[in-house]
Design a protein around this nucleic acid. Structure first.
Length: 487
RNA sequence: CGGGGUGUAGCGCAGUCUGGUAGCGCGCUUCGUUCGGGACGAAGAGGCCGGAGGUUCAAGUCCUCUCACCCCGACCA
């Protein structure tokens, strides 16, 4: 690496250094801090990433029979108070509107921290007969939760997400829906974001306020901390009871509906950045990258034929744009080294260099962002005629490569522990996932959290049955729980 | 909300102890030379020193109060 190249890398803290994440978000222009505490501005490049994620997820929602709708951002206090556990869980985080139109409001309005209350109220009006069920609705929205400590994308006061809310005639149907959407999340996050996750059920202490059961997909970030990346809740009849979502069944009996809710937020953008990024900056999974291929024209020195380079770049852009998201860096002032670093920082999966020498031999130089050798990656000459095919295969290869790399990293950071002492040592050191026996008692869970900072991320669904004893009190356990410090 | 830290040009910082004309690097503008991994020269533009009050002939610097952000904890998608 040249001295200059090194200077560039030094501008960005190393992958495992303090400040890497925040500096990267700023430099790659994903987001910026706003004048509002804890709220960030998602900049066009970051928003394009979110739009790609939305499109891929929304397609899955539609394919599983859901439709989109939109509900108000304000929730009257009386509605929020209907479900006891729900209020208790969310009230410390709620922002209230108490005054509007120059007058104090008779009833204050919550800015939604989640929409079960307002949606449940509407479902109550819409459901009369068993024929009205199921209701399968999703909304893309913003919500506000007054967090004490914020971090771009991972935890912000206002964030964007989607929340699905469904109502069903029977418990098993709602339970199936809960699991179906959990699987949709797993598939989305693993396939599109290349983030390996573990599906599981939350413990009583960690479940959604008001739910009978909460299911989650948990990812492990490079720092050895877990990130809850999506949740699906089986709400039982709790909300149906609170909001009177009832219907007359086939047999003439009046019954309460069974409901579910599930959400995934812009937090996954943070997960994608953390998981795949490196010393050079962002590394975006090709399937969601706003720009998949960056064409970097090399204009050549004085007397070089810039027109020929321009024509070739235009031609390649036109051809490739049928199958990929291509952008040409048309700037003529910046030098090629600058451009390389810029597009590296932005995580674009493939860069194509196109200079006078390449024009002569009708080829382009292809460089992969996922090449671990950031400063001087492998450069491959590809003839124009086979470029589209090569790029298609390379993008797929990069996508699966990112997933495999992340999976291997997670496996390397997943440990089995049979004693609390050993558990504590791991949490004081490398952290990561720990699979340990737990008797199911909340006090034992709390004890582990107090001693190590780790919480039960989930009780993995595919965890094999295994007789063991709780690492805290020694009582019997029949499967290992998954522990980690959380983001 | 506790504990620690930082606010000075777009960004990164020095100057504050010991009060006396606002500095440096990068970036930006213009011109010229360069151009296959962050080029070079010349000339420029850009500041209510986070905010409010106070002390003083004089405040970036001292005092009081505030606000914001960052890091570490407790709370959380």
């Amino acid at each position: 690496m040249t001295a200059r190249g090194k200077d560039f890398v030094e501008e960005l803290p190393g992958r495992h250094e303090e400040g890497w994440y925040a500096a990267l978000i700023a430099k790659a222009e994903l987001a910026d801090y706003s004048p509002v505490r804890g709220c960030m501005v998602i900049r066009p490049y970051g928003f394009a990433l979110w739009e790609n994620m939305q499109a891929l997820l929304d397609k899955r929602f539609k394919a599983t029979g859901h439709r989109n709708a939109y509900f108000p951002i304000f929730v009257p206090e009386s509605l929020l108070l209907r479900e006891a556990e729900h209020v208790e869980g969310f009230s410390p985080q709620v922002a209230w509107v108490t005054e509007a139109g120059g007058e104090k409001l008779d009833e204050r309005l919550a800015i939604r921290p989640t929409s079960e209350a307002i949606i449940g109220t509407m479902y109550s009006k819409w459901v009369q007969s068993w024929r009205d069920l199921p209701i399968l609705i999703n909304q893309w929205a913003n919500v506000v939760r007054w967090e004490k400590r914020t971090m771009p994308f991972l935890r912000t006061t206002e964030f964007l997400w989607q929340e699905g809310h469904t109502a069903h005639r029977a418990a098993d149907e709602a339970q199936e829906e809960t699991m179906r959407m959990l699987e949709v999340y797993r598939d989305f996050v693993e396939t599109e974001l290349a983030l390996p996750v573990i599906k599981g059920r939350k413990s009583e202490a960690e479940k959604f306020p008001g739910a009978d059961a909460t299911y989650t997909i948990e990812a492990l970030m490079p720092g050895g901390r877990a990130l809850q990346s999506g949740t699906s809740h089986f709400l039982g009849q709790n909300f149906a009871r609170a909001f009177d979502i009832s219907f007359q069944d086939l047999d003439g009996e009046r019954r309460l509906a069974w409901t579910t809710s599930w959400g995934l937020s812009t937090r996954v953008i943070g997960a994608t950045i953390l998981e795949h990024g490196d010393d050079g900056g962002l590394v975006l999974p090709p399937r969601v990258a706003p720009v998949q291929v960056a064409i970097l024209p090399i204009w050549g020195g004085k007397g070089a034929d810039r027109g020929a380079v321009r024509d070739a770049a235009e031609r390649l852009q036109r051809e490739l744009s049928n199958t990929t998201r291509v952008e040409v860096d048309w700037s003529e002032e910046k030098q090629i080294g600058w451009k390389h670093n810029e597009w590296t920082l932005r995580g674009v999966p493939i860069r194509l260099e196109l200079g006078p020498r390449d024009i002569a031999s009708e080829q382009a130089i292809l460089v992969r962002r996922d090449d671990p050798n950031i400063g001087r990656p492998e450069k491959r000459a590809v003839p124009w005629t086979s470029l589209a095919g090569t790029i298609g295969r390379t993008l797929e290869d990069a996508q699966s490569g990112l997933f495999k790399r992340a999976l291997a990293a997670r496996e390397a950071q997943t440990r089995i522990s049979n004693t609390l002492d050993e558990f504590t040592q791991i949490m004081d050191g490398p952290r990561g996932f720990i699979r340990a026996h737990w008797c199911g008692a909340a006090v034992c869970e709390a004890r582990i959290k107090e001693k190590t900072g780790a919480t039960i991320r989930c009780l993995p669904l595919d965890e094999p049955a295994e007789e063991g004893t709780c690492i805290v009190d020694g009582r019997s356990s029949y499967a290992r729980a998954l522990f980690a410090r959380a983001y």
